[in-house]
Nucleic acid binder design. Structure first.
Length: 564
RNA sequence: GAGCCUGUAGCGUAGUCUGGAUAACGCGGCAGCCUUCUAAGCUGUAGAUCGGGGGUUCAAAUCCCUCCAGGCUCACCA
């Protein structure tokens, strides 16, 4: 917001359009070098002058006004120093006034549909799903914060050969048992059992195929078993969703209900000459550089992308979205390129508003995760392990007596640490997860953020004065205070950027830097014991920090604690 | 064979879109800081030919070309 002031001043002295100035002005690498810098390189060609000389001349010509306190040339850069008191006043007043709404976008009427994590119902969720969910939930929250209406949807891959495998194993060896553990794990055990048995008895696979046929023919018995086992899976998933802190889904889609749909759309496309039939009778589309793709098999049945085409349109019919986000791993990049291209070919205008938010694989120290071989990090296991570790940490550091309180705290801290860890990488990166080393509670972590917030809350709690922004802003004049305030001022811009690039990691980084500055401030600047006027001023700063950090944590899906 | 993604201190990352000031942060090293609002914290210090090589530019981690390494993918699996 201070950039505009600088642009205004520069426009009067420089033959550049405001957009051109806006493009080149930057924040100096070191606060000592000022608040905003104008690099003079772009002028040197036209004026045929050394940029160092230009900046010197501009320094002489420009007189400080308003929030601009000082203008100084430094080599080819013209550095603008802002008046700290003015800056503090503008930023802090805004935060205190808007409270939780600081940084929020205006409510707009745009709808964002976001789909995640789209699990298969034959086995429990794993660490990859948690990355997916952390991303999906955070991006949802960021968009809500920016003023959009967000519709969270899930797609259950609830039919197919993989489901029949667990079903068959249960039928053969399950003895009609009811789940004696978390029900999705119970189902998953039969999937693993099937894989083990099928190694020696290849005919089991044929049996599973037969079962799938029966399922398709709506065989009563098979369908009943299918319903039963899927309901176990859903029950288990919902527990995990809840434990991981996902908000409710607005709509669930089920592959079993849509897998034959979409055929109409394809046949219609065929009629319009968008697609063609090959010699076997299959409907295909030639997407040139993206390759060819079968849309209907020669026997007229649908393939996976057929239902995706249907679902994309269904989502549009259901929500009239302005944006449709798919949170899906990077192994499906090509699939989504193809899907979106086909939607475009079909003439759906919403095609250009579809976005594949892809993310990288998580590997284990010993290599890739493989669910069939049991080489996976199970979602529930890792969540529970994190909670246990958090509990250990609490007991190490604090003496809290109530075990209920410890439980609640360790849950929030453990899950918070996990979420921060999963979100702090940029999404496209693969990373190796080492259960022993990866997640810590110190340094750049979720608990670090939570802890700094606890410190702020504690100060506010112990204070019994009214906090209002009618203070003397000049009193907030230490280096720590000024840096913290300026960082707080960046928040609205940061959220916008995170939304635009679907990047929760930008919030992570910002929140960490902010907490870092707060901790530095906390260390050297006593609040409650300060002289009255200074105390009042610092309380406003602490309150502002609390509001912004709290907001960051919400966007990351991390729950706050009162103590830790 | 082709396409996409990744490669930055011992380790883990940000910065790359939109080129600019001494390449930023965490972990781990080393040296300090708890009679003061919770030390899950703070301060200082060492540590980098930004995968290699070329090019464009006044200026390249960032743009272009090429090579190397890892990952993902390339019509009737989901």
């Amino acid at each position: 917001m201070f950039e505009e002031e600088v642009i205004k001043v520069l426009r009067k002295k420089v033959e550049l359009k405001p957009e051109e100035i806006k493009r080149v002005v930057e924040i100096p690498p070191d606060p000592e070098l000022g608040d905003i810098a104008f690099p003079c390189f772009i002028l040197s060609k036209e004026l045929k002058k050394n940029p160092n000389q230009i900046s010197k001349e501009l320094e002489q010509e420009i007189k400080p006004t308003g929030v601009i306190e000082r203008v100084q040339a430094c080599g080819p850069y013209l550095n603008f120093y802002l008046n700290n008191e003015e800056v503090s006043k503008i930023i802090l007043k805004e935060i205190i006034k808007k409270k939780e709404d600081y940084g929020k976008g205006e409510k707009n009427n745009k709808v964002v549909v976001i789909e995640f994590p789209a699990p298969n119902t034959n086995k429990p969720l794993h660490l990859g799903h948690l990355r997916n969910m952390a991303l999906g939930e955070s991006v949802s929250r960021i968009y809500e914060f920016l003023g959009y209406t967000v519709k969270r949807v899930n797609l259950y891959n609830d039919r197919g050969i993989h489901i029949c495998k667990s079903m068959l194993a249960y039928k053969k060896w399950g003895k009609n048992k009811e789940p004696n553990k978390k029900p999705d794990h119970f189902v998953g055990d039969y999937y693993v059992l099937f894989a083990r048995k099928a190694e020696k008895n290849p005919e089991l696979l044929e049996k599973a195929q037969e079962m799938l046929k029966k399922w398709e023919q709506k065989d009563k018995e098979v369908r009943a078993l299918w319903k039963k086992m899927n309901s176990w899976a859903y029950k288990g998933f919902n527990e995990t969703f809840k434990k991981f802190g996902l908000k409710k889904y607005d709509k669930n889609y089920y592959e079993s209900k849509i897998y034959t749909k979409g055929k109409k759309i394809i046949l219609n496309g065929l009629k319009r000459g968008l697609f063609e039939k090959d010699e076997t009778g299959a409907v295909i589309v030639d997407l040139k550089e993206l390759g060819k793709k079968v849309l209907l098999r020669s026997d007229g049945t649908s393939v996976y992308i057929t239902q995706d085409i249907y679902l994309a349109k269904k989502k549009y019919d259901d929500f009239k979205f302005n944006k449709s986000i798919y949170v899906v791993g990077n192994e499906q990049i090509h699939h989504f390129k193809v899907l979106f291209k086909i939607l475009e070919l079909l003439g759906f205008k919403f095609a250009k508003n579809c976005y594949h938010l892809s993310y990288g694989m998580i590997e284990l120290p010993e290599g890739k995760m493989k669910s069939r071989e049991g080489k996976v990090v199970d979602a529930d296991d890792i969540i529970n392990k994190m909670i246990e570790l958090a509990e250990k940490e609490i007991k190490k550091r604090r003496t809290i007596k109530k075990s209920e309180k410890i439980k609640e705290l360790s849950k929030k801290i453990g899950v918070g640490a996990l979420k921060y860890y999963l979100l702090h990488f940029s999404a496209e990166k693969n990373f190796v997860f080492n259960p022993e080393k990866s997640i810590s509670f110190e340094g750049e972590t979720g608990p670090y953020l939570m802890y700094s917030l606890v410190r702020a809350k504690r100060i506010l709690e112990k204070n019994n004065e009214k906090i209002n922004s009618r203070i003397n802003f000049e009193l907030l004049n230490t280096k720590d205070e000024i840096l913290l305030i300026k960082k707080l001022g960046e928040y609205p811009r940061i959220v916008k950027k995170a939304g635009k690039t679907y990047s929760p990691h930008i919030i992570c980084e910002y929140a960490f830097n902010l907490a870092n500055l707060f901790n530095a401030f906390y260390e050297k600047n006593p609040v409650l014991n300060a002289e009255k006027k200074v105390r009042k001023a610092r309380l406003v700063l602490v309150q502002s920090y609390k509001l912004v950090m709290s907001s960051c944590l919400t966007l990351l899906g991390i729950k706050e604690v009162k103590e830790m």
